[in-house]
């Protein structure tokens, strides 16, 4: 039997660069909605729930493509709350990174940093065998 995404706690160090001031936590998830790795400040159950929620968000974002010009590629989704922001950014072809920040985060440098991290993540994840994630879409 094939299985779904396996957690890779050894990749957690790659999220160190995300932890700027005002960043709460970050999780990297595969397209199937399961956690690949997460920052240490978020519990395992909450990381699972955050990832599932982000997968759903990514699904609705992708479903919105038809309303934004000709053949758009989804890059990121940003949610604003009165208490902060949630960034959801593509990290390679089969993974995403979600970051939760407070409202005080400096958006410019933070966004720049997050995109640098997903670039590194994307190339790292691209070299790993992906059990059970055969592309069926």
């Amino acid at each position: 039997m094939s299985t779904n995404t396996v957690r890779r706690p050894e990749l957690r160090w790659m999220l160190d660069d995300v932890l700027l001031p005002e960043v709460r936590s970050a999780v990297v998830l595969a397209r199937d909605g399961l956690v690949i790795t997460a920052t240490g400040d978020i519990g395992e159950a909450d990381a699972d729930r955050f990832a599932a929620c982000l997968a759903s968000l990514r699904g609705s974002s992708a479903a919105a493509t038809e309303f934004c010009g000709a053949q758009p590629t989804w890059n990121q989704t940003l949610i604003e709350f009165d208490t902060g922001y949630i960034f959801l950014i593509a990290a390679g072809p089969h993974a995403y990174m979600g970051v939760s920040t407070t409202k005080k985060v400096d958006m410019g440098p933070a966004t720049q940093r997050f995109h640098a991290v997903v670039q590194k993540l994307g190339s790292e994840l691209g070299t790993l065998p992906r059990s059970g994630d055969s592309d069926r879409s």
Partner: peptide, 24 residues
């Protein structure tokens, strides 16, 4: 087991496709 429950209404099927990714 990771359970993903998806909306029942027909109009949500486009999201359903994405959530189904990797399901066994």
């Amino acid at each position: 087991l990771y359970m993903f429950g998806t909306p029942g209404q027909q109009r949500f099927l486009s999201m359903w496709e994405d959530l189904a990714h990797g399901a066994l």
